[in-house]
Design a protein around this nucleic acid. Sequence first.
DNA 1: AAAAAACATTTCGTTTATCGAATCAATTGT
DNA 2: ACAATTGATTCGATAAACGAAATGTTTTTT
Lengths: 158, 158
Amino acid sequence: MEDRTQSSLIALRRILRATELNARTVARATGLTTPQLIVLEIVASSPRAQPKDIAAKAGVGQATATSLVDKLEARGLVERTRGEHDRRLVWVTATEEGRRVLESAPDPLQHVFSQQFSKLPDWEQAMIVAALEKIGAILNAGAIDASPLLDVGPVDRR
Amino acid sequence: MEDRTQSSLIALRRILRATELNARTVARATGLTTPQLIVLEIVASSPRAQPKDIAAKAGVGQATATSLVDKLEARGLVERTRGEHDRRLVWVTATEEGRRVLESAPDPLQHVFSQQFSKLPDWEQAMIVAALEKIGAILNAGAIDASPLLDVGPVDRR
DNA sequence: AAAAAACATTTCGTTTATCGAATCAATTGT
DNA sequence: ACAATTGATTCGATAAACGAAATGTTTTTT
């Protein structure tokens, strides 16, 4: 009942608190700043992204988004290409290098987690995996991703 | 076996990604910057904290920690008091106002979560609560909290 | 064709974050 | 008592982040 929602929220908040510190650590480890890391993650999480959407998702202005993309581009972590059938648009994509940086970033929280996780009894591991996946699905559902329609190129209209 | 750890890590990473954007949103909603929010959370998570420990937990230098605490103090969200029996120390505590800000901060991720959560069947809710609590315990175990010994005041030694 | 709207970028100025080094105060070890 | 250590702050300097407004392109509308 209500009670359960309450309990879950309290537990969730506790996790959120723990993870907030994590982002900073990861950012530092990759040599990026937190805003830069966030933009890189946004870009890498979909095949391509527009500066406008990046700004919206990251919660910054367009000007700032442009500047952050500049920084990432200078390091070869993302690339810009002009839109084919609408040349006002710019598509930002993560480079191989960019994805590699994200993958290889040492993540202290993951480290701690996997260490403790392996000690749990079998049934608990199974339960946690199932719950984690469900939670991930729920949270990611919220981060609606104005799913990047594929740019199919010039279309004959009319 | 190995496989489960792998699955859980993948799921965890997905959650981490989703939550990283959240911190910025919450920070902005409270009128604080992300580093300030983190410091406030560190301070509020225990009855009192030393600048030195704040710096360590937040992953910044002492100088930076001092400056962040300055900002929070200027807004009346935290207070400083000198250590009783060791006057080199400074104890930073969250004010009522500071806690109120944290409590009342609209948290988009929590909103989405509670909404979806309530739709789940009973058994799944129970499972998730259990798992969330376990995960929270695991993650917070990593963020060791040099548990703030209570300052018992001047002690007669000898 | 002209006007309006949409996007990205540039420019300028302000605020933060952050670090290292120096400084000050207080405590501890010898 | 004296020297070394510890904790916090201050100072100075640099790099980011950020926003508002102006600019330049490229659609869309009218």
